[in-house]
Amino acid sequence: MPTGVAMRDAREQLFDAAERVLLRDGPHALTSRAVTTEAGCAKGVLHRHFTDFDAFLADLVQDRIARIHDHATALRAAAGTGTVAGNLTGALTDLFGSVAVAIVALVTFRDDLRARLRRTTPSGVPLLTEATAMLASYLAAERGLGRIAPDADVDALAPTLIGAGHLLFADRKTTPPDTEAVHAIVTSVIAGAVRG
């Protein structure tokens, strides 16, 4: 992009470029130069909007966490509709079929980024912690509707589902698992908790 030409919504364009680099080349290839080259802009654009590259990455992760909060609202609204296993399968597929697996790799790859994120996510793995809370909230809503057993430990089921889902989708080099594979894991994990 020529100097002096304004980018519309530069933050989103830079975030989208970072995701493409991350998905295509992995966390080791994610540099400010790679991001700005992918976005088609001068390197100074990134530094005009962020104090440094780790601040940019922290904002990227926070932006993707905010999207999980939006998905959580929609998932809770789905309580009582469809099937519990179907809703969870969709949620896990949406979560891990996106950039979430690559973001988790990025967080574990960069110590400075992880330290910054500890300010808002003091325990657990940022993004996965929020995704776990999303599933626990949904399962609690289903428990309240009687579709999950009243004694079901949703705080144990949620991280089990997240861990199983992450393992299914973690290999970025092969074809992602199909819906049936995700559904099979979900039904196995929640088998003792679902009523009816």
Rank of each mutant, 00 (worst) to 15 (best):
G40I: 06
A78N: 05
G4R: 07
E130N: 03
L60Q: 01
M134P: 05
G124D: 04
V104A: 04
T174N: 08
D16S: 11
A42Q: 07
A102C: 01
L14Q: 02
A156H: 08
D9V: 11
S188C: 15
L75M: 07
A193Q: 12
R116S: 02
R195T: 15
V154R: 00
F169T: 06
A79G: 05
G163I: 11
D70V: 15
A133P: 01
R64M: 10
A105I: 02
D155P: 00
A193T: 15
R195F: 15
A191K: 15
L14W: 05
A10G: 03
L88C: 12
A115Q: 08
R116L: 10
H69T: 13
H69S: 13
V104D: 00
A78K: 06
A6M: 13
S137C: 10
F53G: 01
K43C: 00
A72F: 11
D171G: 01
V99W: 08
V194G: 11
G86V: 12
E142P: 01
A79E: 09
L135H: 03
L92K: 01
G26W: 06
A131L: 05
L145T: 03
L127Q: 03
A10N: 03
A105Y: 10
P122F: 10
F109P: 00
N87R: 09
H183T: 15
G80S: 09
L161N: 02
D155K: 03
F56I: 08
D171H: 05
D9L: 13
A164D: 07
I148K: 00
D178M: 09
L127P: 00
L127R: 07
L75K: 03
V194C: 13
A141S: 06
R24F: 09
R48E: 07
H71E: 15
H49G: 01
P150W: 11
A102P: 00
T160Q: 09
A29K: 02
D94L: 11
P126Q: 13
R67T: 07
A66G: 08
D25T: 03
A156V: 14
A74L: 13
P126M: 12
G4T: 11
R33M: 05
T37F: 02
A164H: 08
L92C: 05
I148W: 06
V101G: 00
A181L: 14
H183N: 13
H47Y: 15
R20A: 13
R195A: 15
G196T: 15
P2H: 14
T160L: 08
M1D: 09
I68L: 14
K43V: 06
A170I: 11
R64Y: 12
D16L: 13
G144L: 04
T132C: 05
V194F: 14
R110L: 01
G80A: 07
D59Y: 07
V194R: 13
A34L: 02
G144A: 08
V61R: 01
L88N: 03
D151F: 08
A29I: 05
G80W: 10
T187L: 12
G26Q: 02
D112R: 05
A42L: 08
D153W: 10
T120P: 00
V182S: 02
A85G: 12
A100K: 03
F56C: 03
I190M: 13
A191P: 10
F56E: 02
T121S: 07
D153Q: 09
D112T: 06
S137W: 14
I148H: 01
I185A: 13
Q62Y: 12
I148V: 12
A78Y: 04
G44F: 10
D16Q: 12
A10F: 09
T93E: 07
